[in-house]
Amino acid sequence: MFEVRLVQGSLLKKVVEAIRELVTDANIDCSSTGLSLQAMDSSHVALIALLLRSDGFEHFRCDRNVSIGMNLANVSKILRTAGNDDIITLKADDDGDLLTFMFESPNQDRISDIEMKLMDIKSEHLGIPDAEYEAVIKMPSQEFLRICKDLSNIGDTVVISVTKEGVKFSTRGDIGNANIVCRQNTTLDKPDDSTIIQMKEPVSLTFALRYMNSFTKATSLSSSVTISMSSDLPIVVEYKIADMGYLRFYLAPKIED
């Protein structure tokens, strides 16, 4: 038996909206630790890793480890029928092929349930080694969204360079070049507005803006985003999910031919 109840149901809606552009079908792995998902995009360039810890749920029952295979476009259609303030319960029987979504309005005057057919998805699980990153940037997620959106008007790729001067986002395209530099800025009374740059070594990497823009669909999950970079590793773009876990996007760099 699998049954979990999430009071802040909007979190689930936001997570699915953030990943459904990159991933069509995915397994949610359920264990006593919580719910997790790992999936690659169809081009095998980006990897998504989601964790929602069990202690973030009001009720969490998972009698044995199960993988629940689902089509994210269908999950999105179903979650769109839930109100933003609704409490969401997910239920599945052992060996069943249905997942039940139950949506309760905050004052309990509307309760809906929808059963969704599950899928058998063969997915590759990748080992992500713990890494010490050469540069870690924490910045307002809205600012990162704006940078990615603005640069896509000029070019298709972004070079992210971290030096002791700050972090520079650069692009070049047919109409010209663009650079945006963000410096460290610690706003003590508003920590969410801070930009904090931790750098061990200067690092500069090139990425496809199309993927970066897709990652920023997670902006509403968190007021800040953490970007971790090392010269020989995929970038990690992480949105924390309040008191529950994280949504991480890994993106392989583009390299000189």
Binding site: V45, E124, G127, P234, A252, D257
Partner: peptide, 14 residues
């Protein structure tokens, strides 16, 4: 001039 690396170049299959 740039080629897109795959994520599988960096992470191993479990």
């Amino acid at each position: 001039p740039c080629i897109q690396k795959k994520i599988l170049n960096y992470f191993s299959r479990d």
